[in-house]
Amino acid sequence: MGGTKADPATTSFSWSKVFTRQSEWSDKDEFLDIIYWIRQVLGVLLGLVWGLIPLTGILGLGLFFVTNAGLVYLYFSSYHRVDEEEFGGAWELTKEGFMTSFAGFLVTWIIVYSGMHFTEQDLQPFS
């Protein structure tokens, strides 16, 4: 330590642990980071699928909340079986990176939905 970057030994670990069932997480921040990044990828993927189908309105938004929270909950409670209390409860883990993921989801959803189902003429009727 002491340099400007974290020790590579502590940063390269994660990816092998991510897909290993019931991995040991001695560093809580490490697991929270994993949850954060998984959630970002999930947000973009869901936005892509929602835009392609396309899902719209409250149904699309509601399904995103349920899928995102549900999959992440399953990931930490069933796949890794972590002790939620160590991380401040299930709620703390469920909301980790949620707003950023939601923003990423909205961006992808809007871009794909507009790109796939509308033309320039549909969007600029006043020009």
Partner: peptide, 19 residues
């Protein structure tokens, strides 16, 4: 919102040491 927050998260991980 999406990009900035993620870059801050990455910065936290790689720029700051755990201590």
């Amino acid at each position: 919102m999406s990009i900035r927050q993620s870059s801050i998260q990455a910065e936290r991980k790689y720029v700051w040491t755990s201590s």
